[in-house]
Design a protein around this nucleic acid. Structure first.
Lengths: 228, 228
DNA sequence: GTCTATAACGCGATAGAC
DNA sequence: GTCTATCGCGTTATAGAC
């Protein structure tokens, strides 16, 4: 086909209508997904400023300009990554509400968070970075909104357990901080842990052992017998 | 005094000798100290790439060129900050060895680390940043060296306690990770904690409560009765 | 919707006067 | 040892051909 005679996109759009529209939306979904996944890794590894759109584009397998086509600015892309992380953690939070029994609820919650720390550490790292720097992009308002989702119901539930003598009296916040800190440590400090483990990532077996240990210490620490 | 007739530094140096030399060394010490302190805060707040030498200079109260005079490159300055953090944590590690009794040793260790998290959060944040990004500046070798200092003796001691039935059998590494994670969380996630605390930093009283809770849960978690 | 080429800018680092 | 002015590079973002 001679140059200049390639069918114009507008023609095809008019000719084939809905099919092309769907295809476009589909392509958009595929690419934005790929870009976000690539961005999550690069932001985790380099920080917001340290990450370059070029590297993100390379990892996503497309030219830099296309990244800017789907996400106007680096900051908008960064926000999309953060939103994605929040979605994952929301699911962990749900695990907490699966049972009225403290042993079950806490065990499931910690298991969930440990699982995500091992399988998707980058998201946690991006979040940690954002918080360490004082939530400059997320902003305090949005941050407060997210935190309340994770904290409010749990705090109430924990107080109820204390009231009914099911667990020892501890301030719910400090217990939650300990769970968040310990579980997310396996994602955020992955590198440090692997260096201490002879430069090897924790094996599946070690991951299970770590999860058991964490559950065991925390549950016993508040007066429960752990099931694992 | 007319321009061009200001006394040359070399003259004064020859005339007054040692006094000037001392003064110079003194000035150097004062400025390098100020620069490192300023750098620690800016690196903590913005990350390595995000921090600008201009902002560090501003905080230290001198022109940007002077920062480069004392620290040839940004990376050299960053390394100096990291070394400083390690010195502080080395002291915390010593607290662990103050007693052969697990309750005392662990209580003192956690207290020390919590204290530094509250009083000097920036150092911990810089460290966290460096590890999250895979220790690109520190390098694995240096990192391994530091970690061994903090971990080796503690691991041995913990195993001894387990052997003598003083604490429940837990993998020493997972216990140490929990202590590091939980205590450093109060530094690294300071901002998140303050947002959950109604946008106010934890009060002295809350800091004490947090410390008590952390010690209580961890010690009870490994089968000890906490003293606090 | 894709991609190359480039504009516009901020930053680390330094030269060179004082 | 101090400081201003500036160089040179790397980066985000965009213009404009296809």
């Amino acid at each position: 086909m001679l140059p200049g005679f390639a069918p114009r996109l507008s023609h095809r759009f008019i000719l084939e209508g809905k099919t092309i529209t769907n295809k476009k939306a589909e392509i958009r979904e595929i690419y934005t997904g790929r870009i976000i996944a690539a961005a999550e890794e690069v932001f985790a590894l380099k920080g917001f400023k340290g990450a370059t759109t070029q590297e993100i584009a390379d990892r996503a397998g497309l030219p830099k300009a296309n990244v800017h086509y789907y996400f106007k600015t680096k900051e908008i892309l960064y926000n999309a990554v953060l939103e994605d992380v929040v979605v994952v953690w929301k699911k962990d939070a749900d695990a907490f509400d699966q049972s009225k029994d403290p042993t079950v609820a806490l065990t499931e919650y910690i298991k969930s968070k440990m699982f995500h720390s091992f399988t998707r550490p980058s998201g946690s790292k991006v979040w940690a970075n954002e918080i360490i720097h004082g939530a400059p992009v997320l902003g305090d308002e949005k941050l407060g909104k997210f935190l309340n989702i994770w904290e409010k119901r749990k705090t109430i539930q924990i107080r109820r357990w204390i009231k009914h003598g099911k667990i020892l009296p501890v301030d719910p916040h400090y217990l939650l901080f300990m769970i968040w800190a310990t579980t997310q440590h396996y994602a955020d400090f992955e590198h440090q842990i692997s260096v201490l483990n002879g430069k090897k990532a924790l094996s599946k077996d070690q991951q299970e052992q770590a999860t058991k240990n964490v559950i065991g210490i925390i549950l016993r620490g508040i007066g429960l017998e752990s099931e694992v």
